[in-house]
C-alpha cells in the first residue's frame, strides 16, 4: 500500500515537473530560433552545436543504457567508441566504402560490447561501485593500449562521409557535415528507442534492468539481456565515434576523451537513468558550449571541458536527479 502510494505521488510529481522542463526547453529552442534568424553566424553555430550535441547525446545514451542495465558507469565507453572508429578506418583502408565500413563496424561494436559485459563486468557487477568502476578504468587503459599497439599514435584521416558541399539556407551557408551527423545520430537513437519501446526483446531488456529477479521468474534470461544492453550501448558509442571523427577532421587516440566528459555532463543533466534526458542533455550541452565559446569572451575553447565539469557538478549539487530523472533513491 505504501509502495503504491509513493509511486502514485512520484507519478504526480513527475507530471508536474515535466511541464516546467518542457517550458525551459521551449524557451531555449525559441531563443535559438530567434538568434538564428537575426545572425547567420549564430545560425551556423547553432547547427554545428546541435550536430556535436547529438554526438554527445548518443554517447550519453550509451552510458545511460549501461547504467540502467547494470548500474555500472562505463568509464571506457568513450575509448570503446574510439577503438571502433579505428576499426572503421582499418576497414576503409582494406577497401570498403565508408558506409559499408560503418555498418560492419556497428556489428563488431555490438559483439564487442556484449562480450565485454559477459567476460569483465558480470564478475564484478554485484561487488561494489569501486570494483566495477576500476574494471572499466582498466578497460579504458587496455583499449588505449591496444589501439596504440595496433595502429600507433600517428594521426589518421578518414574520407568525409557527407562530402564537402555546403547548403545555402536563406543566405546562411551550412556545411553538409553537420545536418548529416545530426541525422545519422538521430536515426540510430530512434532505432534503439523503437527497439526498446516496441519489441518483445526491448521489453524484456527493460524488465531485466528494472527488476532482474522478477524478470527471471517470467523466463527472461536476465544475464543475456544485460549483455545485449552493453552491446547496444557499444553500437551507439560507435555511431558517436564515427560521427565525432569528421567534426575533428582527424582520428587520434584521444578522440573521445573530452567527448566522454561532455557525455557525462549530458547524462547527469538529463538524469542518469533517463534515456530521453541523455539525448536532450547532449543537445543542450553541445549547443551551449558552442555558443558560449563564441560569445562569452573570457571562455575560450580551452575551457570547454572545465565548463562541462562545472555543469556536471552544478547539476549534481542543485538537482541530482537531473532534468528528467524521476526518482533518486539514496541508499545509506
Amino acid at each position: 500500500m505504501v509502495a503504491a502510494a509513493t509511486s502514485r505521488l512520484e507519478s504526480l510529481c513527475s507530471r508536474t515537473a515535466v511541464p516546467a522542463t518542457s517550458l525551459l526547453l521551449l524557451a531555449g529552442a525559441t531563443g535559438l530560433l530567434v538568434g538564428s534568424l537575426r545572425s547567420s553566424i549564430f545560425a551556423q553555430l547553432t547547427v554545428q552545436g546541435l550536430a556535436l550535441g547529438s554526438v554527445y547525446g548518443s554517447l550519453a545514451l550509451a552510458l545511460v543504457l549501461v547504467y540502467r542495465a547494470t548500474h555500472v558507469v562505463n568509464f571506457a565507453q568513450g575509448e570503446l567508441a574510439m577503438a571502433t572508429t579505428y576499426v572503421a578506418w582499418q576497414l576503409i583502408q582494406w577497401g570498403l566504402s565508408y558506409w559499408e565500413a560503418f555498418a560492419v563496424t556497428l556489428a563488431i561494436a555490438f559483439v564487442l560490447g556484449t562480450v565485454l559485459q559477459v567476460v569483465l563486468i558480470r564478475p564484478v557487477q554485484h561487488r561494489s561501485v569501486i570494483a566495477a568502476v576500476i574494471v572499466t578504468v582498466g578497460l579504458f587503459i587496455l583499449i588505449d593500449g591496444v589501439v596504440d599497439w595496433v595502429w600507433g599514435s600517428a594521426l589518421k584521416f578518414m574520407p568525409s562521409p557527407f562530402g564537402t558541399k555546403t547548403y545555402d539556407v536563406g543566405g546562411v551557408s551550412i556545411s553538409r557535415l553537420y545536418p548529416g551527423m545530426f541525422l545519422v545520430v538521430l536515426a540510430s537513437v530512434l532505432l534503439v528507442w523503437a527497439l526498446f519501446r516496441f519489441t518483445k526483446l526491448g521489453l524484456a531488456m527493460r524488465a531485466a534492468a528494472l527488476r532482474p529477479a522478477e524478470s527471471a521468474l517470467v523466463g527472461v534470461r536476465v544475464d543475456w539481456m544485460l549483455a545485449i544492453g552493453w552491446g547496444l550501448a557499444a553500437v551507439l558509442g560507435a555511431v558517436a565515434g564515427l560521427m565525432a571523427e569528421p567534426s575533428q577532421f582527424v582520428l587520434q587516440p584521444t578522440l573521445m576523451q573530452p567527448i566522454l566528459v561532455y557525455a557525462f555532463a549530458a547524462a547527469v543533466l538529463g538524469g542518469l537513468e533517463s534515456p530521453a534526458g541523455a539525448v536532450i542533455g547532449g543537445l543542450a550541452i553541445g549547443v551551449s558550449l558552442t555558443l558560449v565559446v563564441q560569445y562569452v569572451h573570457p571562455i575560450t575553447s580551452d575551457l570547454q571541458t572545465p565548463v562541462a565539469f562545472a555543469v556536471l557538478v552544478g547539476v549534481l549539487l542543485l538537482k541530482p536527479s537531473g532534468l528528467f530523472g524521476q526518482r533518486e533513491v539514496r541508499r545509506v
Binding site: 509502495a3 518483445k200 521489453l203 524488465a207 528494472l210 527488476r211 522478477e214 527472461v220
Partner: peptide
C-alpha cells in the same frame, strides 16, 4: 506480488507470455 510497477499493465501481461 512482483509486478513490474514501472511498466504498464499491458507490458506486464506481455512479459507473462514472454516464453
Amino acid at each position: 506480488r512482483g509486478t513490474f510497477s514501472e511498466l504498464t499493465v499491458w507490458e506486464n501481461l506481455r512479459l507473462g507470455g514472454y516464453t
